[in-house]
């Protein structure tokens, strides 16, 4: 159960190899979290994380989950809840960047990106929300992106999928009012992770640790939308209104 000060006892991570999600989990296990399930494409790839968590006294497990295989989401999440009991927090953290060269070579490559980032997030999000609603409590944390707020020339496909996921999450959260379930939207800025390796950093680029600190702070306070780093909330409050000609120059 989540306690009065926002600490949670059990966490399910969809996309359990995400650097951001794991940094969040590391902070949670310093608090009350004693049960962690990482849903990843290849469970053996999360073994070192599982070992580290187990050594810290956490009941940790990796299960197989593929964002693209939406037909399996219901069974996988249902089994995870049935086996582990309640989850106080479900973090939806999977996603892929769109490789511009691949997209130029084959427009159908977009289907894969859309299915991974949007379709998969929607199906697993709906299923997780339903399971949380049945247990009457819990938070679904959807990690979208600051790229969801405005489109940019160099990552508009990624941004579009994240925008879809972001809007979906907001509406899903509103539909769950009164059920005891919350949906939290997290919009990280440019972060140095394995996903962004080799990319040119955007302004306010930051580290995974900073992101995780800001996410934990916002989550404990019960925020529904978390910008990380938190300064992006104010930066984008302005940038959202910038004319496109200016935005293009800023965006590079």
């Amino acid at each position: 159960m989540r306690d009065a000060l926002g600490a949670v006892q059990s966490v399910l991570v969809l996309g359990g190899n995400s650097d951001i999600a794991l940094a969040i989990v590391d902070r949670l296990v310093e608090g009350r979290t004693r049960k962690v399930v990482l849903a990843v494409r290849r469970p053996e790839s999360a073994q070192s994380t599982i070992d580290r968590l187990t050594a810290a006294g956490v009941a940790a497990e990796a299960i197989a989950f593929d964002a693209l295989r939406t037909e399996e989401h219901s069974r996988i999440l249902g089994d995870a809840f049935a086996k582990a009991g309640d989850f106080d927090l479900v973090i939806s953290a999977f996603g892929m960047l769109a490789d511009q060269d691949a997209l130029d070579a084959d427009p159908l490559y977009a289907v894969t990106v859309i299915n991974a980032n949007f379709t998969g997030a929607v199906t697993s999000g709906l299923i997780a929300a339903d399971l949380l609603r049945k247990q009457g409590h819990g938070t679904l944390m959807m990690i979208t992106s600051i790229a969801a707020v405005r489109g940019r020339a160099d990552n508009f496909l990624y941004g579009a999928t994240k925008a879809g996921q972001d809007l979906f999450s907001q509406g899903l959260g509103d539909s769950l009012v009164g059920s005891g379930v919350r949906v939290v939207v997290v919009r990280p800025g440019f972060v140095h992770t394995k996903m962004t390796e080799g990319l040119k950093p955007a302004p306010f680029a930051t580290t995974v640790d900073k992101i995780a600190d800001d996410v934990i702070a916002g989550f404990s306070k019960g925020r529904e939308t978390i910008f990380a780093p938190s300064i992006l909330r104010y930066v984008f409050a302005l940038l959202i209104h910038a004319p496109r000609i200016i935005w293009r120059r800023l965006g590079g």
Binding site: T70, E71, E72, S74, R75, G78, T123, L126, I127, D130
Partner: peptide, 16 residues
């Protein structure tokens, strides 16, 4: 939500 149900049969309506 039966296991392996096609993606078109996702829970768009409450199960009860």
């Amino acid at each position: 939500m039966s296991p392996g149900s096609p993606s078109t049969a996702l829970p768009s309506t409450p199960p009860e």
